[in-house]
Write a protein that binds this DNA or RNA. Structure first.
Length: 198
DNA sequence: TCATTAAAGTTAT
DNA sequence: ATAACTTTAATGA
């Protein structure tokens, strides 16, 4: 969890429930709040020139949403949308910034979060240019698997749909599917009733 | 080689 | 039931 919920509540944060595919904020909105997920899944996305969805990040329980925008003065460059029912804590930006000034440990932890976000961005940026589809998908799966304790082959069930994997790597679904199939033939992944094991 | 389109099967809600 | 996801095949850049 990014910031303890008790602390957030103690300085006036409020909770809001969202249904699936509800908008938390839109591209172009002015960031006025710090958001943290209590439960549920959220995606940060964009749409390219001809309507194809590009997913920037997927976020789940305990993670903050769009925190990187709160330290400067620009509108959001992406949308935040729930894709499961969510409970989300919201705290005014100015109160959030006061927390940063007041508690070095919370501030340091926020830097850690920003560091992790940046790391993911660097990995994925490299990925988006050049590279064949199999390499792109492998980079994504390697990143996801890096958080698992168990590192043996095929021990990790990819918690994403092929659709999401495609949108994260800039591939079209069909290519993602075909590529995953050939990766299975090459023993890079296993597929068990449609789930990808890596 | 990969994206796009279309069509159809499968799963989840 | 309906929507979302998965799959296959044909076609074109």
């Amino acid at each position: 969890m990014v910031i303890k919920e008790e602390i957030l509540y103690s300085v006036g944060a409020v909770t809001r429930r969202y249904g699936p595919s509800e908008i938390i904020f839109n591209d172009g909105d002015v960031p006025n709040y710090y958001y943290q997920i209590v439960t549920g899944h959220v995606k940060l996305n964009n749409y390219n020139d001809e309507g194809k969805e590009i997913i920037q990040t997927l976020l789940e329980d305990g993670q903050s949403i769009g925190e990187s925008l709160l330290f400067m003065d620009k509108p959001y460059p992406m949308n935040a949308v729930t894709f499961t029912p969510c409970t989300i804590i919201r705290l005014p930006k100015l109160v959030f910034l006061d927390l940063m000034k007041l508690y070095p440990d919370i501030c340091l932890n926020m830097n850690k979060i920003l560091s992790q976000r940046l790391y993911f961005k660097i990995i994925m940026a490299q990925n988006l240019s050049s590279q064949n589809p199999a390499a792109k998908l492998k980079v994504l799966m390697d990143y996801l698997k890096s958080f698992q304790k168990e590192q043996t082959p095929y021990s990790f069930k990819i918690p994403l749909t092929r659709q999401q994997m495609a949108s994260l790597t800039g591939l079209c679904v069909e290519t993602a599917i075909r590529t995953i199939k050939t990766m299975e033939r090459n023993r890079i992944v296993k597929i068990e009733n449609r789930k990808i094991l890596y």
